[in-house]
Amino acid sequence: MKPFWNLLKLLLPLILLSACDIGEDEVSYHFVSLTTVSVDMPEEFRLNETYEIGVTVLEPNGCTEFAGFDILPENTTIRRVVAIGTEQDDVPCTEVLSEVATSFDFICLYSGTYTFRFWTGKNEDGVDQFMEFEVPVVP
């Protein structure tokens, strides 16, 4: 058994070093917030039911792709929703705007009224702007 452990001690650093090679062919990117254009929100929720919420977001150029949503609870029933994209670094981009229709699933866990605040960009003063929806939870 001891020869096995000695061999493992020798091979493990080699395996780890070779697995960490980051070549120059790797794509470099960073995350960006994407503007929400429209939302397809239900008129009401029922407790413990799941809803698909449709969202249309704007990709600002040919180097940006929608990646998902950052959904942050601001309170028990208040959600701030920001669409997130990945934008490639150091590559030429087209300046074509593209609308992307996507969705996320939401499970209604609390009674009362939910407020959803979808990020729509910043105004001329640099202040975040939101599209808001209030959805009551019915019995």
Rank of each mutant, 00 (worst) to 15 (best):
E43P: 00
R79V: 03
I78K: 03
C63N: 12
Y29L: 05
E43F: 07
I84P: 00
T77I: 12
C93E: 07
S103E: 09
V27P: 00
E26R: 06
C93V: 07
I22E: 10
D90M: 04
S33H: 12
T36W: 01
V32C: 10
R80M: 09
N6V: 11
F69W: 09
P3I: 06
E24T: 13
V81Y: 03
H30G: 11
L72H: 09
E99S: 11
F4G: 03
I78V: 15
T35L: 03
V100W: 00
C93R: 05
E87Y: 01
D21T: 13
I22S: 07
L17Y: 09
G62F: 03
V39R: 04
Y29M: 04
F4A: 12
V55G: 01
G62S: 14
A83N: 02
T64V: 10
A67V: 01
L47W: 03
S28N: 13
E52P: 03
Y51W: 06
F31K: 06
T64I: 03
I84F: 01
L17S: 10
L8Y: 13
V91S: 05
V100Q: 04
D70L: 13
I15G: 03
L7R: 14
V39S: 07
K9H: 05
Y51N: 08
E52N: 14
L47N: 08
D40Q: 14
N61Y: 05
V57P: 00
V39E: 04
G23F: 06
S28E: 15
L58Y: 01
V32H: 04
L16Q: 09
E59C: 06
N75K: 13
Q88A: 12
F66T: 04
S28V: 06
L10G: 14
T77P: 01
D90P: 00
L34I: 05
I53A: 02
Q88H: 09
R79N: 13
L47S: 10
G85S: 10
S18A: 15
L8I: 09
G23K: 03
L47H: 05
P42H: 03
N6E: 12
E95Q: 10
A19H: 05
H30M: 04
T102G: 06
P60I: 07
G85A: 08
V96Q: 14
G85W: 00
I22Q: 10
G68L: 04
N61K: 02
V37Q: 05
A101K: 15
T86Q: 12
M41G: 05
F4E: 09
L72D: 11
T86G: 01
E74H: 07
I71G: 08
N6P: 01
E26M: 13
D89P: 00
L97V: 06
E52Y: 10
D90V: 00
C20N: 12
I15C: 15
P13V: 09
G85K: 01
F69Q: 02
V57Q: 01
L14Q: 12
P3L: 10
R79H: 14
T56C: 02
V96K: 15
F106M: 06
F45Y: 05
L97E: 15
E43V: 08
E24Q: 11
L72N: 13
C20V: 04
N6D: 15
E65I: 02
P60C: 04
F104P: 02
F66R: 03
L16P: 02
C93W: 09
P92V: 12
F66A: 02
G23H: 06
L10N: 11
P92T: 07
F45L: 07
A83Y: 01
I84L: 12
V82Q: 01
N75G: 14
I78E: 12
L10I: 09
